[in-house]
């Protein structure tokens, strides 16, 4: 009897180490101009797949609604504003724009959702051919002078009005809000453990079974992962980089994160990673910190209520908040580059 028992225990131990049937469902689709990966854990595959398809629909709907140059709600708003007429906002768009404006104000305008005309001038708007040379300086200066900020808009009731020259492009914010809504959709479906990853900007809820979710943050210049971050409970990890959309002309890199003060790509920073519970805020903050620059980003982080951020400059120097330092684990030992811990003001 004892022999059988011991044999049974050994066999169970062996089997426990073997492949269990997959409890994780992964889906991938294209939306908002990027690849979206949805990972759902602990839910039967068909139910997970159905939920994933609803997330895909959500992304498509939001993409259409928030496309600055399309036929959806935001496109219509932009056309009205361009014609000098006030625009009617549906409640949802009103809420989103109000939040965007609030964040823009808190970042002293470094996160500027009304930079659409400059983005288009540079050629970084989605459906166009990749640019290969910068626009003429005169054009940049002209657009910079002409363009108005989201702060210049007036929202009264459901009506939006403002000076001509406002072109709303929720680029540094829309993905974040979409990810938040996707997570909420999954939670309403009764899914408690999932990741929604929209082209490298993600939010994770719950855990992966016995362990937290393991998120890797890519190195801005080298292949492979720089740091690992674990998420359990609820957390968003958003990264802005100068390597996502860019071109090189005469040896200089021009990327898509424009500095609203200069009308040109923000200088000095290669990537920013922000961790926060809310994706929309994380998205806006990653952009704002990028524009703030390698020296001044802590002040902007404090203004936005961000405590976990990591900034890598174009020289490869890594700086981060103390809270971020506690969270990340460098894959390489010793870590590449100098690490500088920056206290928030």
């Amino acid at each position: 009897m004892i022999r059988l028992g011991v044999a049974a225990v050994l066999a169970a131990a062996l089997l426990a180490g073997c492949e269990r049937p997959p409890e994780e469902t992964k889906l991938r689709f294209t939306a908002m101009g990027t690849l979206v990966d949805v990972t759902i854990y602990g839910v039967p595959p068909d139910r997970a797949r159905a939920a994933g398809e609803r997330v895909e629909s959500l992304f498509r709907d939001l993409h259409r609604a928030w496309d600055p140059w399309g036929d959806g709600a935001l496109g219509q708003v932009n056309r009205s504003l361009a014609a000098g007429e006030p625009a009617e906002l549906d409640p949802d768009l009103r809420q989103v724009l109000a939040r965007a404006r609030d964040l823009s104000g808190r970042s002293d305008g470094l996160f500027e959702p009304a930079l659409g005309s400059l983005v288009k001038l540079w050629g970084f708007s989605r459906d166009e051919a990749q640019p290969d040379h910068p626009p003429p300086t005169a054009a940049i200066e002209a657009e910079l002078a002409r363009h108005a900020a989201i702060a210049d808009l007036l929202i009264s009731g459901s009506r939006l009005s403002g000076p001509p020259g406002v072109m709303l492009d929720l680029g540094g914010f829309a993905k974040g809000v979409a990810v938040d809504r996707a997570i909420e959709l999954l939670q309403r479906d009764g899914i408690a453990n999932a990741i929604v990853n929209a082209g490298g900007d993600l939010r994770a809820i719950g855990r992966r079974g016995e362990r937290p979710w393991r998120i890797g943050v890519r190195h801005p210049r080298k292949p492979g992962v720089l740091v690992a971050i674990e998420v359990q409970g609820d957390g968003a990890i958003f990264t802005s980089g100068d390597y996502e959309r860019y071109f090189v002309h005469n040896g200089t890199r021009y990327h898509h994160i424009l500095d609203p003060r200069t009308g040109r790509p923000a200088q000095g920073v290669a990537s920013v990673t922000v961790a926060h519970a809310e994706s929309g805020l994380a998205d806006a903050a990653a952009t704002a910190l990028f524009v703030a620059g390698a020296e001044n980003w802590p002040a902007t982080a404090a203004q936005l209520g961000i405590t976990e951020a990591m900034v890598i400059d174009t020289e490869g120097n890594i700086s981060m908040t103390p809270a971020m330092q506690r969270r990340v684990r460098f894959i390489e030992d010793p870590p590449p580059g100098r690490i500088r811990v920056r206290e928030l003001p």
Binding site: L35, T39, I195, L202, W213, V217, R218
Partner: peptide, 26 residues
């Protein structure tokens, strides 16, 4: 590592060995 031609719907992803991550932020 992934490269994708989104308009064409073609995605190339490298599958390799080593450390496993549930998702990559970049």
């Amino acid at each position: 590592q992934v490269a994708a031609c989104l308009p064409n719907g073609v995605v190339a992803e490298v599958i390799g060995s080593g450390q496993q991550f549930d998702a990559i932020s970049f």
